[in-house]
């Protein structure tokens, strides 16, 4: 309760009054995301030590999942293909359960394969596990249900739904050869240190120089040219994840940004930059938390979240 109160105080005192209108002018920067500026583009130059910081990956450092071309041509393989379709086009193949414009692969990057991008192959061997959010031991299926409720802002598929079976099958196939019960390197998100010095003003500038190019000026993402689904996923607004999801936690979002964004330049933002832009995104409007607003669901059952 205290946390929620603090949050609203924060929102009203900073967001509406002071932060957004004056953030750019105060720092005296004219913002043009299309302009090429080496000082902002190059992480090396923005580091205080002027040292090169390159995320170097050795061959064999991370687990390599099997190739899509190697999916077997049998009933099991059909289920894997269905799971992969659901995973990369959730709004099409699991339409009845999806509530927004995201796909599974919007967060689990590169079809759930990218290390430090919440890979599926690292998660499969860890479930069932104790989860602090629910304070129970959850199975992989229950975890996927939570994904649909919060991150997909939709309805949880039942445990015997074909979509659920397909997703679990795809996860199992993707983690072929991965050890069980071991924390594999590249699991989940990279760890970053805590800091108290978060500033959405700086975050706005980071957003406008690094993120806006793809996710759009208003953070609503960009749709495909044929109008179906999102090419670049929305970060806030009606079609984004809701307030109960994991990425609504600032530090989790900062970890995700640090490890994966911008595409192809992982670990190029500093910890401070990723935390700043995470709190800027956290301040924006998005669908409400379904578990914290059951009264709304009771009195207005048809109202969109």
């Amino acid at each position: 309760m205290k946390r929620i109160l603090l949050k609203w105080v924060f929102i009203f005192s900073f967001y509406h009054v002071a932060v957004l209108p004056v953030a750019a002018q105060e720092l005296g920067q004219t913002l043009d995301s299309l302009e090429v500026r080496p000082s902002l583009v190059n992480s090396r130059l923005s580091l205080p030590t002027q040292l090169t910081q390159v995320h170097v990956i050795s061959p064999g450092e991370y687990f390599a999942p099997p190739l899509v071309a190697d999916i077997p041509d049998d009933r099991f393989g059909d289920m894997v293909r269905m799971g992969r379709n659901i995973f990369i086009k959730t709004g099409v193949y699991a339409k009845r359960y999806a509530g927004n414009g995201l796909n599974c692969s919007s967060c689990h990057l590169q079809e759930g394969r990218k290390p430090h991008g919440i890979p599926l192959w690292a998660a499969y061997g860890r479930y069932p596990m104790y989860r602090h959010k629910t304070r129970t031991v959850v199975t992989l299926e229950e975890r996927i249900q939570d994904c649909f409720i919060y991150s997909m802002n939709g309805i949880a598929p039942t445990l015997d739904a074909p979509e659920m079976k397909a997703l679990v099958t795809y996860t199992k196939w993707l983690s072929k050869g991965a050890p069980v019960g071991v924390d594999l390197p590249g699991r989940g998100l990279p760890n970053i240190s805590r800091t108290q010095d978060l500033d959405p003003k700086r975050g706005k500038i980071v957003y406008e120089t690094r993120c806006e190019l793809c996710h759009g000026k208003d953070g609503k993402g960009q749709k495909h040219t044929n109008g179906e689904g999102y090419m670049f996923p929305p970060l806030w607004g009606r079609d984004s994840y809701n307030k109960g999801s994991g990425l609504q936690r600032v530090r989790t979002l900062a970890k995700f940004i640090k490890g994966n964004m911008p595409l192809g330049a992982s670990f190029s933002l500093t910890n401070q930059e990723s935390l700043d832009v995470a709190i800027y995104i956290w301040l924006q409007d998005r669908p409400r938390n379904p578990k914290m607003s059951q009264a709304m669901d009771f009195f207005f059952p048809n109202m969109a979240r």
Binding site: H55, L109, Q110, P119, G264
Partner: peptide, 12 residues
């Protein structure tokens, strides 16, 4: 083209 090289951090 579709998956890149995730084990090297290369997007598609």
């Amino acid at each position: 083209a579709l998956r890149g090289k995730p084990e090297y951090g290369l997007p598609s």
